[in-house]
Design a protein around this nucleic acid. Structure first.
Lengths: 211, 211
DNA sequence: ACAATAATTGAACATTGTTCAGTTTTATAC
DNA sequence: GTATAAAACTGAACAATGTTCAATTATTGT
């Protein structure tokens, strides 16, 4: 083996990811070009193609890190909490906080359309699945009387709600003054949603009891 | 005045929009290039720039029509309905139905990031505002006891919920088998949300009554 | 018929993703 | 220590993109 610089493949890979993230953060998705990434690493375009199959591949890698970071944030936010409702609220506001703090990374992660027909890599779906699993767990513990079959749909709906708040906020579709109001909308969303579930669960439990 | 072909400026504009929409529908956002649009119109690139300031301008025009079409669909879906809950559900499922039927147009409308710092044109915000107004109206009539000040946040949260279902469905982030399940998640979202509001409104009404 | 003017073209430019033959560096063999 | 092979790296090249604008063509008014 032989190498010119003292950077291993893995180091180069990390340098590329760092460069890409820095570019996206400061200049948005538009600024994320192969040459810009290479320049920031101190290498040439060609080198990038020794590490990543193409730009989509690089973007997927960036997104995998983004989603992992987001999940880590949630983990931290829910660390001490036992009450399932508290945990769900912590997950929600952690999700929104990340979106507000890294809007460009968030949009790259959730809006990017790969040019080729390549599917979303497992390194990303693994993370999103875990997030969904956290939501599912919270809901399961919050509504122990609910059918297990109904949980996935419920978790999807819950996540959709908070995801929608983030997306509409970042795209400025609603006329929400950024940070503070977005959290207000999120609270409203979460409270209404969870508030709506409790009576339903109680009703179902009651029906079960009467059978 | 003089013109070579028998197309007026307005006709050319409409031809461009039709071409762009057809391309986006069949080949996705990636296929939407100036040359592709021009070719499909039977004109040259240069002509496009006599009608639109740049590609972003064209995309904004496409999106304006998309949002207008979506709103027209909602209008139709709610036409005969009186009950506010029914109207809100009709709005929701109409929104999702459009997203599923025209995923590429929907994503172009709600994910596009303009290169320049140009703001979203009034032709688009006008339509989205009207949608929000419809939601607001439904909620106002559903919860007549609620403070008027709380309504905008509530409407934003409601719309965020259904928007989130659409977005996660189209981006395939959740592992929902497309059409049928998406509607199931939407129903869950809407029912939970509205179900959570009723008791709150009742509570508020009760508090008012006891004062 | 003839300007004047509008409509349309298409060649040009910079920038993009991507490829790959060639160059430079390092490690190993002798 | 020198030669050889292999790896790392370059940068010139290509096609495709958005955008511009001088040149060309068609139409209208006189």
């Amino acid at each position: 083996m032989a190498r010119r610089s003292d950077h291993t493949r893995d180091e180069l890979r990390q340098m590329a990811l760092d460069a890409a993230r820095a570019i996206v953060k400061s200049e948005g998705v538009q600024g994320l070009t192969t040459r810009a990434v290479a320049r920031r690493m101190g290498y040439t375009v060609g080198t990038l193609y020794l590490i990543f199959h193409n730009l989509d591949d690089l973007i997927f890698a960036v997104n995998a890190q983004t989603v992992a970071d987001m999940r880590a944030g949630m983990e931290k936010a829910t660390a001490g909490l036992q009450d399932p409702a508290d945990r769900l609220k912590a997950i929600s506001s952690s999700y929104l906080a990340f979106a507000l703090q890294h809007p460009n990374l968030w949009r790259l992660a959730f809006e990017h359309q790969s040019s080729g027909a390549e599917p979303i890599p497992e390194s990303i779906t693994r993370e999103t699945d875990q997030v969904l699993e956290q939501v599912l767990d919270g809901l399961r513990r919050l509504l122990p009387t609910l059918d297990e079959d109904a949980l996935p749909t419920l978790a999807a709906a819950f996540w959709s709600g908070i995801h929608g708040v983030c997306h509409l906020t970042l795209t400025d579709t609603l006329k929400i003054a950024k940070a503070q109001s977005a959290h207000t909308v999120l609270d409203c969303q979460v409270n209404a949603f969870l508030g709506g579930l409790m009576p339903a669960a109680a009703r179902q439990a009651a029906e079960r009891g009467s059978n």
